[in-house]
Simulated assay, not measured.
Amino acid sequence: MLEPCDVIREAIVSALPSIPVESLGRMMEKLIQQGVETEEDLQYVREQDIEDFIKPIQCRKLLASWKRKSPLPAGKNWPDAFKVNWEKMTSSLNMCLQNGKRPTPADRRQMIRVLVDDIRKIEVNPSRAQCLIIATDIVRQYPQSFMDTLDDGRTTVGAGYESLLCQIKTRIEHLNRNNTLARRRASKATNGTKPQRRPTDTYGCTQWQPELPPEETEASLEDDRQKLMELFSREGSSGMERAEVLKLMEKTYYLQRQMINANPAPALEHVKQQWPYLFFPRSMCTHFEVLTDVSIVRKIEAFLEEHGKNIMEFFKKNPTNDDVKNVLFRTDCSVTASNILQVLMAHFKEPLDALIIQTD
């Protein structure tokens, strides 16, 4: 795959072969800074982006050339018709598919790179739902090679496609990390209702850096942060149970993200000084839910309910060390969150007091 500078140079020179070297270099630098990484990205460039380097007619000629080369807009249902080009994949991966075996991590990573390049020729930043259709189709076609299963090869983990979907989406987000034109942003509400959160290119986060809340200013939110500081200095950790604290923490999420996302990144101790209530489990879970649209507590509960019994049964039949045996004996193999955590920590030889405090 060509580097962004090579892609841009070829796209410019093919339309303007007589462009001065100095103008070419400056224009390439500007486009890369703006986030152009692939040939498809060039369709988003506007005349004002390049007018400082070439004459107006040259600008229009260049943009017209890029527009002709850009792919037609993808239909909403393009993932349903998408076909993986297996001929582009490594011979060793295709051999695994034919024999119903799992590909090596290296072959799988190479497959993801080729697959994502083909996807982005149709849509630069497809949604998670669109990637899901492609991932499930691959798993359905080659379940022995791509289905998420336990070590026994028979027990399906979750829906069976999560790891493949995660790899595809993460690769797309990585390629779009500096391309602001390819981001998916939340549409503003027009009827007074709360706008629906949509995916962005920030590794699965839906509220990485939200816009300033309506009818609020940074000054008003800073006042609310000061109120939180005063409450903490007066009531300490007990203030975490107050409804006022929970409401103020939710209201000031915008400022919290501003500090966390600052460049250079602030020291953890500084964040803790400015947002003491953020470092309590309840606030962390709430912050994570707003950030990702995922309720981590409900996710953990659902996981334990769905897979807890399998985990305990596995270690009951295959105790991996003496610590695991002791936990199973002590807990009588009962399926609870505490027991599952203990047996997993024993398996990985982690000290129990690193995560769990035992009391009478």
Rank of each mutant, 00 (worst) to 15 (best):
G75N: 07
T320Q: 13
L165M: 01
A186K: 11
S18A: 12
L150C: 01
V7F: 06
I300Q: 11
H287D: 11
L181M: 09
E173G: 04
Q342F: 02
V290R: 08
D107Q: 06
F146H: 09
S283C: 09
L231M: 14
E235I: 04
V84N: 02
D118E: 12
E3Y: 01
P17A: 10
E51W: 02
T190V: 14
S14F: 12
Q130I: 04
Q144Y: 11
N125G: 09
M229K: 10
E306M: 02
E301D: 09
I300H: 07
R128P: 07
G35S: 12
L115G: 00
V84F: 04
R26E: 01
K83Y: 03
N263L: 15
L16Q: 01
P319S: 06
M284G: 04
F82L: 01
A346V: 06
N321H: 00
N318V: 04
I32L: 15
M229G: 08
I260W: 08
S233P: 00
L268F: 15
V13L: 15
I32K: 12
E37K: 10
L212T: 03
E313Y: 07
T359A: 13
T202N: 13
L278Q: 05
T217K: 13
W86C: 06
S127R: 12
R120F: 14
V297D: 10
E215L: 05
E211F: 01
C333S: 10
T320N: 08
V327G: 00
R177Q: 14
N261E: 08
L291P: 00
L175R: 14
S238C: 10
W208F: 13
G75T: 04
P199M: 12
A337H: 13
T202F: 09
R183W: 05
N125T: 09
K30D: 04
Y277K: 05
E235Q: 06
L150W: 11
S18I: 05
P143W: 04
K272C: 09
N125F: 15
M312Y: 01
T206I: 15
N191Y: 03
R257L: 02
V343P: 02
V13K: 13
S187C: 07
T286N: 14
R298Q: 15
Q258V: 00
W86V: 11
T331V: 00
D332M: 04
V157T: 02
G158T: 02
E313K: 10
K227C: 08
K309I: 01
S163H: 05
Q141T: 13
N263T: 10
D6T: 02
E22R: 12
L352W: 08
I356C: 06
P210V: 07
C131S: 08
I54E: 06
S145C: 07
R298A: 13
S18H: 11
L228H: 07
L164G: 03
P17N: 10
P73W: 09
M1Y: 04
I8T: 05
W66D: 00
S91T: 10
G239Y: 03
A129P: 02
N326L: 13
N99D: 11
L42D: 01
D323C: 14
C205R: 01
S334V: 11
D148E: 01
E39K: 05
S14I: 05
L62A: 05
R330F: 10
